[in-house]
Design a protein around this nucleic acid. Structure first.
Lengths: 240, 240
DNA sequence: GTCTAGCGTCTGGCATGCTAGCGGCGGGGG
DNA sequence: CCCCCGCCGCTAGCATGCCAGACGCTAGAC
């Protein structure tokens, strides 16, 4: 019933602090919100996205919502069927295979590039991360280990200044995050994963580009294989 | 020079056949138009994009234009400065290096994956393409050779069914296309490029994954080196 | 002469009303 | 009873009007 008008104190900022925050557009906020909703699994793959509900919930008009959905469609987290509706992208085994291939390609190339280029601070960070990984593996602390795993890969990527590649990898991570939940890693794999990470780190610190590439490829190929066995066990969880 | 990806039937006889209606939105049209304008160089890097002019020229409202510009900003061909303006992205040597890294990563991984998987038809296409390349190299037909070069890489990528990776590579090609114009390949390189392509094709046909990866990496590393020498010669042509 | 403050203009961001096309559902005919 | 067809409601797409912020220019003060 709000008659258009500026989004001043009462309509949009209801109960919100006058944050001197970063200059984030409303489209950005909607984008983050919807993406989080999808990744958390609160919206199942294939579910219809109700734009109006989003408008009401976030107190914005349809414009920023459309912009955000378009962005999500661009990175294939949602599919838009013209004049019909917007839906959360289904998880297809074929697509996941492809995302894993792209990740394998990028991360191995980046590992090779990072070889010998790491600063002392990053080396320390890497070795500390590995120590923590071993500790988490011993304690069978899966969530902790996962966080360290993600951090490990991020340290390497961030060591170079690759905004575009980082963006692609973050996009991939969004997709792969959706399958990780089902992909319960067998407990016995943790030490192996640790060893693979250590091999990658060693090659990078030693400055051996080819070896770093291959170590990272080998590591990520393990993940791919894990996925393939899972697909054979539960083919029902994927489309096409 | 071919268009984007959709492999659907082209609009050969519009207005005659009723069924294959053009399902392209206006935003898509604007996207293609502006992208083509940027890639052709009619809009210099750093130039301001006049949305109103686009609206008038294409006879659409600001909405599809904004949508298209947003998409182009997403793939970094334009940068949007909020409340100030939209500009054609400048060409920075650092970014180009990164794009080349990503391309190297993806294409080499894909070459490895394609090894042994090519159909007979694709093998024939590849060998025919190589024959033509040799002919174009002998005749010093640079434009023809370039077209064949692009086609060569496309055959390999298309042999697998990788829509996401293809999309990324097409996006990269858009950026790299902008520098290719300045990057006048020394005439002596054509036979070498041919040989590199042949090595890639041989490894793929032989089904040797590691060899195919390495051959493709080596090939694309040559391109990177060519770029680096050019940057040293003409650092003025790049920003930052 | 120089620096600064204020205003004008230009741009992107947002709200909202309207249109066209797809799908589902119910009614009518076979 | 079943199938087909047309109507209705839904959605994305589009047009348009308004708002707020960022530059730039100019005029006024020091």
């Amino acid at each position: 019933m709000s008659k258009a008008q500026p989004v001043t104190a009462d309509s949009s900022d209801a109960g919100r602090s006058p944050a001197p925050k970063e200059r984030r557009s409303k489209a950005d906020q909607v984008y983050d919100d919807v993406k989080e909703t999808i990744l958390s699994g609160r919206l199942d793959p294939g579910a219809a996205i109700d734009k109006i509900e989003i408008c009401d919930r976030l107190g914005v008009s349809r414009f920023p919502v459309t912009t955000a959905i378009n962005r999500l469609a661009f990175e294939r987290l949602v599919v838009i069927e013209p004049q019909h509706g917007s839906f959360v992208a289904r998880i297809s085994a074929h697509d996941i295979r492809e995302y894993m291939l792209v990740r394998r390609a990028l991360e191995s190339e980046i590992a090779g590039e990072a070889a010998g280029r790491l600063s002392d601070g990053e080396r320390l960070e890497l070795s500390r991360n590995l120590r923590y990984q071993k500790a988490a593996a011993s304690a069978k602390d899966m969530p902790g280990f996962y966080a360290l795993d993600v951090a490990f890969h991020r340290i390497i990527v961030r060591s170079l200044d690759l905004s575009h590649a980082s963006g692609i990898l973050e996009g991939l991570r969004a997709h792969l995050e959706r399958v990780r939940r089902m992909l319960l890693t067998p407990p016995g794999r943790l030490p192996k994963t640790c060893a693979e990470h250590a091999a990658v780190a060693d090659a990078i610190v030693a400055g051996d580009k080819a070896k770093a590439r291959e170590a990272m490829r080998a590591h990520l190929e393990q993940t791919t294989k894990l996925f393939e066995t899972f697909v054979r066990e539960r083919p029902d969880m994927f489309s096409t």
